[in-house]
Simulated assay, not measured.
Amino acid sequence: MINLFIGTKQKQSLKSVVYLQQLFIALLLLVLVTVIGTVGYIMIEGYSIIEAIYMTIITLSTVGFTEVRPLSDAGRLFTSILIIFNIAVFAYSVSILSRFIIEGDFRKILIERTMKKKIDQLENHVIICGYGRYGMEISKRFLKFGNSFVVIENAPQKIEELREDADIMHIEGDSTHDEVLVEAGIDRARVLVTTLNEDADNVYVVLTAKQLNPRLNIISRGSAINSESKLKRAGANHVIMPELIGGFYMASLVRKPDTVDFFQLMTEQEDTGVSFSEIVLNELPPSLQNKSLKEINSLELTGANVVALKSPHGDYIINPSPQTMIEPNMGIFIMGTNSQIQNFQKLVSE
């Protein structure tokens, strides 16, 4: 019954601990039999420490070297018992090492430890819950654009796929469990994306994540129509309904195919030289206080175009007037080359 309450990750960690304990026991037995042999030869045959250690080693290794000195009857009996005991210890040690190597647990433990160190160093990263179709696609996009992220998955088949891809940091576990989210560095993360199949599981992840990190930006997948309101009440900032988005996208391709292709090109392709970017002004620097878009002269100074604004209340202003005043916590959407966007970021941060 206890196993029902142990997560997949906990079981894997427990298994690794058991293997390490067995290896430690095997090593301890080898040391113990060496000590017993050394002490026995000193007491029974009167050997020196060096002679006793040498005699013990050649006896345990069964190399067949000649004894240091002829053994007494008591010495022969002791040697026979030592050999029999060593056979049992040797068989146990070989079985543990063989299973450890053949089953790949040694490699898995090394990978897990290395992965944990990397995850512990992450800051402002993204946590992806689930490595299904959506989680896999998100991971591909993040790898392409260099975003830091970690995947949480508990399906054995998916875990094997993740292990084969050394570029994806991952944790084996149930993302509805607090300790798994903590291990993924939820207190340091900036975004969590949950793509689980069941809406109930996504609601549970959102509730748990929001409790662990109230400042976290949470994006959740939703399946049922009525799940959107539930997920937002649980704490999700955005709820994505794949079927609705797919239908909207296909309808848009019918009505405005070139416009859809243009925006997809601008948001996904970096080789065009021009892209969109969003800059959030959490605090206004002195250079932007009580100034309008025209007064900051961004186009002439940076070459980047301001195409939209997002007010602190969440309202969008498309193609804003040059007289629009800059406000704290405002989002600015700009279009330009990478260098133009970087120049604009410098302008609004000075």
Results as ranks from 00 to 15, higher is better:
residue 187 D to T: 15
residue 42 I to D: 02
residue 41 Y to E: 08
residue 180 V to G: 05
residue 174 D to N: 14
residue 83 I to Y: 02
residue 195 T to P: 07
residue 27 L to D: 15
residue 187 D to P: 01
residue 179 E to D: 15
residue 185 G to Q: 04
residue 109 I to N: 02
residue 350 E to Q: 11
residue 208 T to L: 15
residue 15 K to E: 15
residue 143 L to D: 04
residue 264 Q to F: 08
residue 103 E to M: 05
residue 80 S to V: 12
residue 183 E to A: 12
residue 183 E to I: 01
residue 325 M to H: 06
residue 305 N to L: 13
residue 75 G to T: 06
residue 325 M to W: 01
residue 5 F to K: 07
residue 190 R to P: 01
residue 176 T to F: 04
residue 129 C to E: 06
residue 242 P to N: 05
residue 94 V to W: 07
residue 82 L to N: 03
residue 262 F to H: 10
residue 14 L to G: 08
residue 267 T to S: 08
residue 215 R to K: 11
residue 144 K to F: 15
residue 102 I to Y: 13
residue 175 S to N: 00
residue 135 G to Y: 02
residue 114 T to F: 15
residue 172 E to S: 07
residue 151 V to G: 00
residue 244 L to W: 09
residue 33 V to C: 10
residue 233 R to Y: 08
residue 208 T to Y: 05
residue 189 A to V: 00
residue 38 T to H: 00
residue 144 K to T: 14
residue 252 S to Y: 04
residue 173 G to S: 05
residue 224 A to E: 15
residue 151 V to H: 00
residue 99 R to N: 13
residue 306 V to G: 03
residue 24 F to Q: 14
residue 265 L to W: 06
residue 28 L to T: 08
residue 217 N to T: 13
residue 101 I to V: 12
residue 230 K to V: 14
residue 5 F to S: 09
residue 33 V to T: 12
residue 272 T to S: 09
residue 222 G to H: 01
residue 298 S to V: 05
residue 291 K to Y: 01
residue 262 F to E: 08
residue 141 R to D: 09
residue 337 T to H: 00
residue 16 S to C: 07
residue 349 S to P: 05
residue 196 L to I: 07
residue 107 R to S: 14
residue 332 I to C: 04
residue 86 N to C: 11
residue 233 R to V: 02
residue 264 Q to G: 10
residue 245 I to P: 03
residue 181 L to Y: 03
residue 49 I to Y: 11
residue 180 V to L: 05
residue 52 A to S: 13
residue 94 V to Y: 08
residue 204 Y to E: 11
residue 219 I to E: 01
residue 44 I to V: 03
residue 257 P to R: 10
residue 33 V to A: 07
residue 296 I to W: 01
residue 248 F to V: 10
residue 123 E to T: 11
residue 103 E to R: 13
residue 204 Y to H: 14
